[in-house]
Design a protein around this nucleic acid. Structure first.
Lengths: 222, 222
DNA sequence: GTCTATACTTGGATAGAC
DNA sequence: GTCTATCCAAGTATAGAC
């Protein structure tokens, strides 16, 4: 899809004045979604937070919805990169739960996922936005599925709990915890759940369901 | 808290003209939250769906936010009553999962929980709304905790997974599944997860973690 | 109790000066 | 590329006729 903004010197976004302003606006959009939610994320509110003029939203992004999608892209890319780096190190379900819990805690405390939640919930109010948001959430499910595959794919657990369903549930749980945390500022409830998961995961693994030969290379995730 | 609307003949809402219109508006508010989300739930949109005038929203409820809270109350009361009736019959974790899955499927297919999700996500945009919404979500967590308590409270599972944390996770998962279902109309993913839960629950129960004496009366939930 | 009409505010979006 | 000024649509809320 073509960039909706103005022509920049080179496609790809250098560090010119234009790119700088775009970044200011994207960051401000993220902040505004976090603090005021989708319904409060107007061009004026975002521009005020970015310290620039309201008209620039339309100059650079064409519409508020496009700016919000750019914000969603930015959060999504940053977080998925972070997850990828961390999950590479996990070799067993217990280890996966361990790193996942650490990163989820990071997300919950920083409120990164609020952006996803607000965009999903807000999508209903703007025709066509739903599909755009859905396309940007899909990578999260894919990522979760591959992470789970690489770690439980070769255990008997896999036939009992297909990775696709597990991944769907994991993403859902993640979004729901964010929703509740955001509601009452009660990040503690989510965090203690992560602690519990770390504590229980090894037990599940020990119940005769661990990989038959732990040193086998993980099967290719398709 | 006092009724914000006009004085009705008797406190408690008889079946007069006023109560009738109030119900029309509440139902329309629920429908609008489902179809257009929080950001699309304006007084005009709701009144149009109710087939009446926009001014009636303010006459009966004082503000849009109050009407939306009344809608949340209505959904919450109806659904909690439904759950209570169904869960009474469950005596084991597997049975609890069974009835829970059936009712959750009902909710997901009808989109009842969209109302909760939209109100939680939308609360961020209106000062003071967050606390009101939080107070209306609390009963869901309480209900889940008591249901879990009554069924796993006397098993060794209880020390491993405290019912409070489990309940928080259950509500979060529930809200998250609704969020995803609503996004891509993909109710199937949530439903197959419920099927999977029903299939796996008995196995967990059999792993030597079942109630030590199945006929003991369940311990009192505090 | 319900409607029409209206005051006021906020928001999306564009035009044109700089 | 950024700003000011402006138009227009939509929203909240109230006043007053019926």
């Amino acid at each position: 899809m073509a960039r909706s903004g103005p022509s920049s010197r080179l496609a790809g976004g250098g560090a010119g004045r234009s790119a700088e302003t775009r970044k200011l606006l994207v960051d401000a959009a993220i902040e505004t979604l976090r603090a005021e939610g989708f319904a409060g994320a107007s061009a004026r509110a975002i521009a005020a937070r970015a310290g620039c003029n309201q008209a620039l939203v339309f100059y650079h992004f064409g519409s508020v919805a496009s700016l919000l999608l750019a914000a969603l892209d930015a959060v999504s890319a940053a977080r998925l990169a972070r997850y990828g780096a961390a999950v590479e190190r996990a070799a067993s379900p217990a280890e996966l739960v361990e790193v996942a819990a650490a990163i989820f805690a990071e997300d919950i405390e920083a409120g990164h996922v609020t952006v996803l939640v607000e965009m999903i919930a807000g999508a209903a109010s703007t025709p066509g936005l739903g599909a755009e948001v859905a396309a940007r959430i899909a990578p999260w499910r894919d990522f979760a599925r591959k992470a789970i595959d690489s770690v439980v794919g070769r255990t008997p657990l896999a036939s009992l709990l297909p990775s696709g369903e597990l991944a769907h549930g994991a993403v859902a749980l993640y979004l729901g915890l964010e929703l509740l945390s955001h509601l009452d500022g009660d990040r503690a409830a989510a965090l203690s759940l992560f602690e519990r998961a770390k504590q229980v995961a090894p037990l599940v693994e020990v119940l005769g369901l661990a990989p038959s030969s732990p040193d086998d290379p993980p099967q290719e995730a398709k």
